[in-house]
Amino acid sequence: MNCELAHERIVLSAYGELSDEFQHELDRHLAACTECSEERQQLLALKTLAAVHPVIEPDANLVARSRLRLEEALDSLPPRRWYERFGQSIVNNFSSLQAAPVAACLLLVVGAGAGTLGGYEFAEGRAAHVAGRAQAAEAATAQTAQQNHAQTVAANPAEVANISSIVRQPNSDMIEVHYNQVVPQRIQGSLDDPAIRQLLMLASENSSAGVRDDSVGLLAAECRAGHSCKGEGMRDALIVALRYDKNEGVREKALQGLEPYVSEDMRVRDAVLEALLYDTDPRIRTEAISILQPVEADTSVRQVLSSVATSDHNPHIRTVSREVLNRAPVIQ
């Protein structure tokens, strides 16, 4: 122990603030160090001197006077208002929280956790709400789009990639056409629906044999029934089908659909005559002959029938043609 430390410990020792262990060390040092021993004597002398200026107990008069003055001062203080007490209680509560750091930390952690969870839930709920609204809006849009689809399809027929199927609901005039766009879609409506008709006409050109058969069959039935078969391209679609479709069933249906218009529409008549002359299927040719009967007076019809009756390689066709020609007495 050096003397500087010893001087400090002498003070502590004199005032009873030194631990037993350090006291023992100090005693050993003092026994060996004259200077520090002298220091200790001086400090003890100081203590003795300081005792000459003793602490005096305040006399009763001073106490009474002070208390009286204090009571007067306290009495003159305005009573604390309710909001002051309330504010004080809040401050105290907050202070208690500060005084309990563990509880404060715990509360903070719990609060942060709850806040995060709540925020997450809220955000999720909000997202779901927004998504729900978006879905509802989408559904409404889809409905509107379905209603307006005729215009869409009419305006952009190229958007229809192909027609996958056409179904007619039993005992109903409702037709269901499955067609593909970039995103496959479905549309449902009656045969009178322009959008449905548009799709049926597209189907008659582009789809598989089955779809063509369905579409042409429906278009033909519509035309035979006399339902607005003019001006919307339906008749043209049937003519094209009759001329170019590779499937005889489709061609046959197209022919049947065109039947009502043979007498009035030159283009239809020409198509039927072509079918009679060039179609590969005898059934279609035979049927074409029967269809042409009402207009046998037409010279072009008669010429074709005569030609067929004389030179066709199919005996049945020849026979039928001849019969038809024979049934017409007036030949122009």
Binding site: P58, R65, S66, L70, A73, L74, Q88, S89, S95
Partner: peptide
């Protein structure tokens, strides 16, 4: 001493809530 007594206890009264 009297002044200090007075002021000390008035302060104590005012801030004992703390």
């Amino acid at each position: 001493a009297e002044d200090i007594y007075q002021e000390a206890f008035l302060k104590a009264f005012r801030y004992i809530g703390n």
